[in-house]
């Protein structure tokens, strides 16, 4: 036995010959391998295929290289430009409202009694767990021009004289989508903010109050820096989700009227599966990814460097 151990020590195998650091790295990569496989197959390769085919006239019956034609066409396409504008409006309006509202609710609730906190967390989280389709069906019924409860109430109160096509009028359709989007988006940020605020150092807050800090000063100099990482996460995730708003548009308006409520994600879907122009749809997807990337970098810089 002693001999065997001695012989093993004298003849280290290739793995044992590696420096400790290398060995750890190798083991780490081996642990990562299963995940990496799925990531490459289901994320990296489809992305590369999407970018590749965006340079082709790829339809159900043809696949021809057309260089930058798809990208040039994008910026001459009224439907794309409208969808791009709507998507940006959606992000610019819905994301700040969602974040500010979630922060407000979180701030009000985080030091309440456990029952109250859980009750409101449940209420605000309900639309998230209910599922987009179910929520949308109810909203669609409420917004229905001829049989909806909203027009019925407003007409009976004398606020409006004529039914409003909430989902068919370019003045209201996008606004209706924003309202629903906000209700389905605030749940998770509220949960995250309540958790983040609950983890703040109460001793620091109490000490600052004893030193005469006002409520605003406490928020500005202690609370806000403390929840900044959560805010960064909330802002980035909400922005990305808003950029990818699709199901609400598809279920409620199908982009009507005349693409006034369409988003880029919806247009990608329509272009691919209604018009079967897969290459052109992929070019839109690439542009959307670039825009999301730029927004994310700006947000990361804005929320991670300064307190």
């Amino acid at each position: 036995m002693v001999e065997k151990i001695t012989s093993n020590k004298s003849k280290p195998n290739w793995y044992q010959k590696l420096p400790m650091k290398r060995r750890e790295t190798l083991v780490s990569y081996l642990f990562l391998l299963p995940c990496l496989f799925f990531f490459v197959v289901f994320v990296v390769i489809p992305i590369l295929m999407g970018v590749f085919t965006s340079f082709f006239n790829y339809t159900s019956s043809s696949f021809e290289f057309n260089g930058l034609d798809n990208y040039i066409r994008l910026f001459q396409d009224q439907a794309f430009l409208r969808s791009l504008k709507n998507t940006i409006v959606l992000v610019v309006v819905a994301v700040p409202i969602t974040v500010i509202f979630a922060l407000f609710v979180g701030y009000v609730l985080y030091n309440r009694k456990s029952f109250t906190r859980s009750l409101f967390r449940g209420i605000f989280y309900l639309p998230v767990v209910t599922g987009t389709v179910a929520v949308t069906v109810v909203w669609a019924w409420m917004f229905d021009q001829y049989n909806g409860v909203l027009n019925w109430v407003l007409m009976n109160m004398g606020v409006i004289q004529q039914e409003i096509a909430w989902l068919g009028d370019e003045r209201f359709a996008l606004m209706a989508i924003i309202i629903i989007l906000i209700t389905t988006s605030v749940g998770q940020p509220i949960i995250l903010y309540i958790a983040a605020l609950g983890n703040l150092d109460t001793a620091q807050i109490e000490a600052s109050k004893i030193d005469g800090a006002t409520e605003w000063q406490v928020f500005r100099h202690i609370t806000w820096p403390g929840i900044l990482p959560t805010t960064l996460y909330v802002v980035m995730i909400t922005t990305i989700n808003t950029f990818q708003c699709f199901s609400l548009v598809q279920l409620l308006t199908s982009g009507a009227p005349d693409y006034h409520s369409s988003t880029i994600m919806y247009l990608v879907y329509e272009m691919a599966f209604t018009f079967k122009q897969f290459g052109y749809a992929n070019a839109m997807g690439v542009i959307l990814a670039v825009i999301i990337g730029i927004f994310s970098i700006v947000q990361y810089k804005a929320f991670s460097s300064k307190g």
């Binding site: 917004f143 021009q145 096509a165 068919g168 009028d169 308006t253 199908s254 009507a256 009227p257």
Partner: peptide, 10 residues
């Protein structure tokens, strides 16, 4: 008003 416009309906 004798036809009903309806963008929100299919």
């Amino acid at each position: 008003g004798w036809l009903t416009p309806s963008i929100a309906s299919d």
